[in-house]
Design a protein around this nucleic acid. Structure first.
Length: 535
DNA sequence: TTTGTCTGCCCC
DNA sequence: ATTCTGC
DNA sequence: GCAGAATGGGCAGACAAA
């Protein structure tokens, strides 16, 4: 029988991608995937599924592929042709080569990774090279995500979607789920509960005011919780052993021994999965330190002791998802919170109130901002913990600031924005020198129509063309929202805006009326009334 | 040794 | 992370 | 109402190049 089976060729896989990309119906996409899964050897399932969602290798390979945009561009330009013509590449050929590339480490690894990639590309047609690049960059853009693949898997294997979904949410890795699902229903159901394997976190939806947030959750009583400007973490505990995962499920335990210690001392459970926000605080003043200072701690593996001294951390817990063998995702939030409070010492909990009074919620929000925090979360009391989904149970309200800035340059967009200038350099005015100094870039806030208009106007103002980027006469003023001013190692102005987005085009303002460098510096300094100094 | 470039399912 | 758009 | 696309600043680490 097996001599009749032909391994799938990479070029045929590309055809399938194109078919999936050209239909907008999700059902149809799933059907196509299911059809091919049935025809494939089991050994091909993993590459097939991973490639379809734009993953070149399984997440479980630590350190990732180590190939990005630069290396790909170089390899695309300089493919290394094989000495002898070789057979067309199969899906598994490509997958195995990519895994080999991932395991290239140490001295000259950049060069060796490049050579391996260029050799692989040398065996490919132009089309295959392009699609391989898309897979590596995770930019297939055929409208398939992990969730769709789960549906197709369930369909083909005759396993319930619920079982598959549960395993996925608890594993957090599609490749793992394929492996487990292939072992059958028993293996699938036995995946959880398992500690030290992170699960996909529940996400929040933004709102622009407390009133709007209350509206979105349907009114009534809600928890209003401080939203700290830190990094979200998931903490797994079993009999004193602690592991900490980041929001994207990276294991960050090693960098955070102080947080581990805080958890050991402040949490009394045998087994649990908790969630919270890790925040840096200034010693002495107790003010929260800026996010960029926290990041100096986050993925550090050298000089940790020293960094701990300089940048002390705290944890603010707000969730318990698992307790002593029981998953709590279907337990209502208020009950979960009770379980959390019973087991955690008070100073480790995120500050919160429960109220149906919007005035009271607003004043709590204001107080949170006064203490230098980012905002609040408004949470529906009876909501389950919905894994990996941005729903309307958790609403975030964050503070923002606004400035008028001048566009001094722009870059051509990609994909659906490829015919527009879609990424703009924003500058402040310096009356002393007459110069406009860049303080950030943004591609957010304009509608398609506005992009078209802006492209036309910017081209009229062009003073220098660098191909992918143009520089323009400073003339167009835009109103820009942003969350924070950061110290910049990149821009000459020394400052950069965090999360800048355009809110409107100020046709009524001249560039000299835009914000000045001095104003921006004053705003920057003012941030330290509430926050600790950048280290 | 120092400085620069690239990468990261990075963090936000 | 935020925003707009297509389904 | 949701998912997808298009992209921001800055950080540490791993190598490469000067």
């Amino acid at each position: 029988m097996s001599w009749l089976v032909v391994d799938m060729l990479f070029k045929d896989f590309i055809r399938i991608c194109m078919r999936i990309g050209s239909t907008s119906s999700i059902t149809e996409k799933k059907n196509i995937v299911a059809t091919y899964l049935k025809e494939l050897e089991r050994s091909e399932w993993k590459p097939f599924i991973l490639f379809l969602v734009g993953k070149p290798i399984p997440d479980s390979i630590e350190g990732g592929l180590g190939v990005g945009y630069s290396t790909i561009m170089k390899a695309l330009k300089n493919p290394i042709k094989p000495l002898f013509p070789s057979n067309p590449l199969t899906l598994n050929d490509v997958f195995n080569e990519l895994i080999k590339i991932a395991y290239i480490r140490g001295k000259d690894s950049s060069k060796r990774k490049f050579e391996a990639l260029a050799s692989l590309m040398g065996r490919m047609s132009r089309e295959e090279r392009i699609w391989l690049s898309k897979i590596i960059l995770g930019e297939l853009r055929i409208g398939l995500v992990d969730g769709h693949l789960l549906g197709a898997l369930s369909n083909v294997l005759g396993l319930s979607l619920e079982d598959i979904r549960r395993a996925y949410l608890l594993r957090g890795d599609l490749g793992d789920v394929v492996d487990v699902a292939l072992k059958g229903v028993e293996a699938l159901r036995n995946v959880p509960p398992r500690l030290f394997s992170p699960i996909r976190p529940m996400l929040a939806t933004p709102a622009s005011s407390i009133a709007e947030a209350y509206n979105m959750i349907g009114g009534g009583e809600a928890a209003v919780e401080v939203k700290y400007d830190g990094a979200r973490v998931q903490i797994h505990i079993k009999n004193g052993r602690v592991k900490i995962f980041s929001r994207r499920l990276t294991d960050v335990t090693y960098s955070l021994p102080d947080v581990v210690e805080i958890v050991r001392n402040g949490v009394s459970v045998d087994e649990a999965i908790l969630e919270g926000e890790v925040v840096a605080y200034e010693r002495g003043s107790g003010k929260p330190l800026p996010f960029q200072t926290l990041m100096k701690r986050f993925k550090r593996i050298y000089n940790i002791e020293e960094a701990m001294e300089l940048i002390p951390l705290k944890i603010h817990l707000f969730e318990i998802i698992y307790l002593n063998g029981k998953l709590l995702i279907d337990t209502p939030y208020s009950d979960r919170y009770d379980l959390l409070v019973e087991r955690v010492s008070e100073e480790l909990l995120a500050n919160r109130i429960v109220t149906s009074n919007i005035r009271e919620a607003e004043s709590f929000y204001k107080r949170a901002l006064d203490y230098g925090h980012e905002g609040v979360m408004v949470k529906r009391l009876n909501s389950p913990y919905i894994l990996g989904v941005r729903g309307k149970h958790w609403i975030k309200v964050k503070s923002k600031e606004t400035l008028d800035l001048v566009i001094v340059g722009a870059e051509w967009g990609h994909g659906r924005r490829s015919s527009w200038l879609s990424d703009y350099y924003l500058a402040v005015y310096d009356p002393n020198s007459g110069e406009y100094l860049v303080v950030g870039k943004t591609f957010k806030g304009l509608t398609d129509e506005e992009f078209q208009y802006m492209t036309k106007r910017l081209l009229e103002l062009k003073v220098k063309d660098e191909g992918f980027r143009i520089w323009v006469k400073p003339e167009i003023v835009v109103e820009v929202d942003f969350n924070e001013i950061q110290k910049s190692p990149k821009y000459k102005s020394g400052l950069a805006l965090r999360l800048a987005r355009i809110t409107r085009i100020r046709e009524d303002k001249s560039p000299e009326e835009a914000a000045t460098l001095e104003e921006l510096y004053q705003l920057y300094e003012r941030q330290f009334e509430k926050k600790g100094k950048v280290i």
